[in-house]
Design a protein around this nucleic acid. Sequence first.
DNA 1: AATCTATATTCCTACCATGGAATATAGTTC
DNA 2: GAACTATATTCCATGGTAGGAATATAGATT
Lengths: 135, 135
Amino acid sequence: MELVKIYECLCDRTRLRLLNVLAQGPLCVCHFQSILREPQVKISKHLAYLRARGLVRCERQGNWMVYELPAKPTRELQANLACLQDCAQDNPVFRRDLAQLKKLAPEKAVAAVCDERSCTCNAPRRVRRAVSGTS
Amino acid sequence: MELVKIYECLCDRTRLRLLNVLAQGPLCVCHFQSILREPQVKISKHLAYLRARGLVRCERQGNWMVYELPAKPTRELQANLACLQDCAQDNPVFRRDLAQLKKLAPEKAVAAVCDERSCTCNAPRRVRRAVSGTS
DNA sequence: AATCTATATTCCTACCATGGAATATAGTTC
DNA sequence: GAACTATATTCCATGGTAGGAATATAGATT
């Protein structure tokens, strides 16, 4: 039963948040990181989980991987994503995520990829490197 | 997030079948057994799982436990049960289960409890007993 | 080619769920 | 009250999943 696979994807809080944000349009991984404020491994793994089960697709754009919902979802997937959208209305977590999304890309409704040069998502790594240079 | 709990309940094939049948009305455990053709432990455990998470209620009637969907489900639960109903339309397993249900209770759309005397759900046990009596 | 950046994968640990066999429990009937 | 019926619970083994730390990879930049 394919339906079970869908529900398996939906029964994790992080994955629900990812899908909720993705419903607004394609997005790259580091934006997910800063919107959900979750570590890179976690985001990446859950996206892989969703990808393995056909709930999302992804495409490379330079350094960035852009994730998106499938163009032609199953009837079952479509119904459940709509249901999720519906349920997300009231939920403070989901609403906050969408607010964060708008902050990252205020001009267009949807943020696709980070700025050309460097995105600020992984700030900590740059800091660590600067420190090591002082020795 | 309560929504996750709902999806956790939905991500098992047996539980989906139980909920699909329950959408037609209250039902006792042994009817579930014969409709799904699954062993008693399995049915009972999954019903307990659903009960612990508030997806079903139950009430004793003599020897029988009658399970039913909650009278006033959450908005979220309501939405997801409706979505499940929608998805179940096409699914052969779900359809077969409903057909079995109608066979058990053709007169009324909904079967509540087994016959007064003895229900035929647990036939194997009676056989075993007969055998032991021959010694 | 060396370095950097964004993302993925591997390894590990802890936990939770599933399923079946056996057993317990709570009503019912005789 | 003893036997029976419907259902629940316990015990056990197995497998899947989540999360983090460390590491790998692929493309970009210098």
